[in-house]
Each structure stands twice: as structure tokens, then as C-alpha cells.
């Protein structure tokens, strides 16, 4: 009955042990840093606040709207959590949600949890933070500005997280990069729109009822340079790496092969650096990747464009 319908939780067996360990380390670092910073910011309130909000995000992922026929759109919530709580608390909240989904509901693997946490709790939050803070610079801090920034943050959080997941699959030798990356990117470019819309809807409600609760939208959001930089680096790294990986999947396979010495029984297969680009698909893959990049540019362009236009307009409408 409980399940997170967002298609990003990787089960066990799909990520190689090496990749899993690497991302466990990365995620743990991120979570530990978040723990320290949350303590400083929230103090005593942190446990009840984060606990209940984590429950709300989990429950919120059940809310859906019908897209066409049988499919429906859902919320992941990383961007929304970031905007409401700020990055550090959001990391912990998403960590709790994803962990429970894995441990209790088998949504995502146990060994793979480190990787899933990295994608959803770390990348999701950091990229949201980066995009939101960047876009809001170009808009005024009014209702429309917040919505535009929120939409962009939500879209990017989904899109870039999916790239991270795709690369993990490719690095593990589970899915060839020239299929995994375009597939994940393509699907999540669309899912991201749904996330963006739901996020805006939620922001609209919260803005109307209790504007003060939007931490990132407060007049003095303070905030963290470190997260902003981290988010930017992650976003850039993943967006650049993905098309590269896609067009040179042998490179990744070579890496996987090297790590694959742990699975050494199938020696010969790994020693060869195969050119296993699907015949005829190679160009299509590139095309899909290009489409993904174009999609990114379009969304970014629209966001910045709208923001710029609003700035140019005179102060005629109320927030």
C-alpha cells in the first residue's frame, strides 16, 4: 500500500559493491555535516519538527494527480523540503524518508541505500538549494518570484538526481550508459515538470497561509555558501558527465571493469573493452541526450527570462 511512486529508488543487486560503498561514504559525510549544522540552527525543536515533516513528506508522496489514462504524477519533495526547512534539515528529513522506505517498505535496496540517499537526499537537496537561491537573485522576493524559483528548483532536483542514478547504474555495469542516461534523463525531464507544478501549488498554499514558514523565502535567509557551491558543483558535474558518459560508455565500462575484479569469475568479459554501443542506437542516444540538455536550457531559460521580465516591470501589482 505504501510506496513511493517516483521511479528513482534503486534496488539491491543493481549497484556494484564498489559503487555502493563509495556512495555510502559520500552520503554519510553529507548527513554528518547536516547533523552538525541542524543542531546549530534549530536546537531543541529539531527532532519534533523534522520528524513530523518527514512523515508529511512520506505521506505527501501518496498525493497524486492524473496525467493521462492510467498514469499519475507524484511528489518527491526534496525541493519543497529545502525551501521550507533550509538545506541541512531537508537533508535529514529526506534521509529519514528514503531510509524508512528502504528498510520497511523495500522501496530501494539496503546496500544501495547509500546511493539512493546520495541521489535524493544530497543531490536533490543541494541542487534545489543552488537553483532556488540563484533564480531568486534574478527575481524579486515576491510571490511570483518564489514560484518561479521553486519550479526551477524542483525540476532540477529531479532531473539531476536521475542523472546521478543513471551514472551509478552505468558505473556498476548494470545498464549501459548510452541507454541509462538518456532513458533516465528523458523520463525525469517530464516527471520533473510534475514535481515543479506540485511544488508551486504547495508553495502557493503555504505562502498564502503562513509565509513565515518558508525559510528560504524569508528576508534574511542567511543560508550557506557551502551548500550553494556544493549544489552548483554537483549539478554541473552531473549534467556535464552524463552526455559524456553516454557517448563514451566504454570509458565507464572500463572503470566498472576495473572495479569488477571483485566479480572476477567472469574475467575475460571485463578485460575486453567492448564497443558495445548498440548498432544504430548510438546517434539516437546522442539525440536524446541533446534533447535532455535542450530541455534543461529551455527550463532554465524560461525561469531566468520570466524572472528578468518581472524585474523589469514596475512595481504595479501586489504580492
Amino acid at each position: 500500500m505504501f510506496y513511493a511512486p517516483v521511479a528513482m529508488h534503486i534496488p539491491d543487486g543493481f549497484i556494484s559493491v564498489m559503487v555502493a560503498i563509495v556512495f555510502w561514504v559520500l552520503s554519510s559525510l553529507g548527513i554528518l555535516v547536516a547533523l552538525r549544522n541542524v543542531n546549530r540552527e534549530l536546537g531543541e525543536r529539531e527532532v519534533p519538527l523534522m520528524g513530523v515533516l518527514a512523515a508529511a513528506i512520506f505521506a505527501g508522496q501518496m498525493l497524486n494527480f492524473s496525467v493521462t489514462g492510467g498514469t499519475s504524477g507524484h511528489l518527491l519533495g526534496a525541493a519543497l523540503a529545502t525551501i521550507i526547512l533550509g538545506p541541512w534539515a531537508a537533508v535529514l528529513v529526506m534521509t529519514s524518508v528514503v531510509s524508512i522506505q528502504a528498510l520497511i517498505f523495500q522501496d530501494g535496496g539496503v546496500l544501495a541505500l547509500g546511493a539512493n540517499l546520495f541521489n535524493m537526499a544530497i543531490v536533490g537537496v543541494a541542487v534545489s538549494y543552488f537553483v532556488y537561491r540563484t533564480v531568486i537573485r534574478f527575481t524579486r522576493q515576491d510571490r511570483a518570484g518564489i514560484f518561479v524559483a521553486g519550479f526551477a528548483a524542483a525540476w532540477f532536483s529531479i532531473f539531476v538526481s536521475s542523472l546521478s542514478a543513471a551514472l551509478q547504474l552505468a558505473l556498476s555495469g548494470t545498464s549501459p550508459a548510452n541507454i541509462a542516461v538518456p532513458a533516465m534523463a528523458g523520463i525525469h525531464a517530464l516527471i520533473g515538470i510534475g514535481e515543479g507544478l506540485i511544488t508551486v501549488g504547495a508553495l502557493a498554499f503555504i505562502y498564502a497561509a503562513r509565509r513565515d514558514l518558508l525559510k528560504l523565502a524569508s528576508p534574511q535567509p542567511g543560508g550557506s555558501r557551502a551548500v550553494w557551491v556544493g549544489g552548483m558543483l554537483l549539478a554541473v558535474l552531473l549534467v556535464v558527465l552524463s552526455p559524456l558518459a553516454s557517448s563514451h560508455p566504454d570509458g565507464l565500462e572500463w572503470v566498472a571493469g576495473q572495479k569488477g575484479f571483485l566479480n572476477s569469475a567472469q574475467g575475460p568479459i571485463y578485460k575486453i573493452i567492448p564497443d558495445y554501443l548498440l548498432p544504430g542506437v548510438h546517434n539516437e542516444a546522442l539525440a536524446t541526450v541533446l534533447a535532455g540538455i535542450i530541455g534543461v536550457l529551455i527550463v532554465a531559460g524560461v525561469a531566468f527570462g520570466m524572472a528578468y521580465l518581472r524585474r523589469a516591470k514596475p512595481e504595479s501589482d501586489k504580492a
Binding site: 505527501g60 504524477g73 511528489l75 507544478l197 506540485i198 501549488g201 504547495a202 502557493a204 503555504i206
Partner: peptide, 18 residues
């Protein structure tokens, strides 16, 4: 509109949990 209404529901949920 449907997506935004769903968002409103999420916002409602979040606010009440807060």
C-alpha cells in the same frame, strides 16, 4: 490545474504537520 491542486494538498499537509 490538477497538479497545482495536488500541490495545494501537499502544502496543506505540510502546514498542518508543522
Amino acid at each position: 490545474w490538477r497538479a497545482r491542486v495536488t500541490g495545494g494538498m501537499a502544502g496543506n499537509l505540510f502546514l498542518r504537520s508543522f
